[in-house]
Computed example of a mutant assay.
Amino acid sequence: MSSPRPPFRVGIIGTGGIAHAHAEALQSLAPRVEIAGVVDLDRARADAFAERFDVDRVYLDAAELFANEQLDLVHICTPPQTHTPLAIQAMRAGVPSLVEKPTALSLGEIDELAAVQTETGVPVLTVFQHRFGAAARHLKALAEAGELGRPLVATCETLWFRPDEYFDVPWRGRWDVEGGGPTMGHGIHQFDLLFAIFGAWSEVSAFAARQLRPTDTEDVSMALVRFENDALATVVNSLVSPHETSRLRFDFEYASVEVQHLYGYTSEDWAFTPAVGHEHLATRWAERLDSGAISGHRDQISAIFDALEAGAAPGVDLTEARRTLEFAAATYASAFRRSVVEAGELTGDDAFVRSMSGGIVPWAPVKEVLV
């Protein structure tokens, strides 16, 4: 009889708000995992975080963490402009990383990550936790088995509200630090789940605008999307919507499936409507659904540990993350160039490979330079 595996040892880089969600998820998975150390430039904040989550060791930079701890995984919970250099540092140290969205600020950066991953053999994963909720996993299985028929139409809405004061934090609302507005930082979870269910997108036609907020980036974007399987969808991302909701609706040949929530769903947030003559699918839908768990970091982190134990590739890998990030880049390129953008079109030296803004934001001062 084999002895039980020692706990997974993880580190957390960055101890701001989102790191608390990671730490709470990790604590809920104990004793399967232990937080070996945390990193933050602000020692007082790091100490407070370590005390709250019962972590013994605090470091002021990532190099100290990697030099002193044997880690199975490191969680990168820092502002977006630091994601790529920290993930590269982790790969060079031989430690897989789980990076908060967005993985990188541009397609060029994510391609740089892919090159280092190929060189080192160490994976970079992205937090797209909504893929891992029970209902989403069940829907994906039914769709891939063909039980719901052809995917036809979808709507994907991230209608959120952020007041002007939200952008008082220096790194928010800037192309050079966040990479974009709600398309990059808020709606990306929703349309990532859309693609996980409906498959690869093939072309996009979009608009983006700065309606109200004191930002360099957009505060609203809207896109029409065609998929490789000829399904069609609308994708809306907003930070100016007082009635907040996150909504996805999938219309298949034999059923409509819809979820409405805000920052995380349970199985009870989903509605299933079979087409006439396919009422038996309602019974199939009701199978294997829990009712209480909220989709969140815990689901994805647990799935990562499962994969690592089985010697399998954990998700969400760089290839899939790039497809989602490419959609964000294509949304901006289509909006700012006023043209339809096809998947795979943004390559090489294209301005929207180097920066999500492409250097041609319509509302930017003329003096803006490409970042």
Rank of each mutant, 00 (worst) to 15 (best):
W201T: 04
R9V: 05
T319F: 11
T324E: 14
P123L: 10
D168L: 05
A21I: 02
V124N: 08
A93D: 03
A50Q: 03
P274K: 06
P242W: 02
A104R: 03
I18A: 10
D216A: 09
G173C: 11
A23S: 12
E51M: 07
V257C: 15
S238R: 03
G344C: 06
P151S: 06
D219S: 00
A303K: 09
E228M: 06
E253R: 07
E157H: 14
E268P: 02
L346D: 11
A206G: 08
V55K: 01
P123F: 11
E100A: 01
V225D: 12
L142F: 04
D54Y: 05
W270L: 04
Q129K: 08
A312K: 00
I197G: 07
H243G: 02
V122F: 10
C156Q: 04
L29R: 06
G358H: 03
R137H: 04
H278V: 07
S241L: 02
D168Q: 09
A223F: 00
L113P: 15
E268N: 15
E24G: 08
P314Y: 06
D216C: 06
S2P: 14
T155Q: 10
F191K: 02
G181Q: 06
P79Q: 03
A46K: 10
H83S: 13
W171Q: 03
L105F: 10
L159F: 04
P123G: 07
T183W: 08
S357L: 14
A136E: 13
I12M: 03
A307H: 09
V240D: 05
T158Y: 13
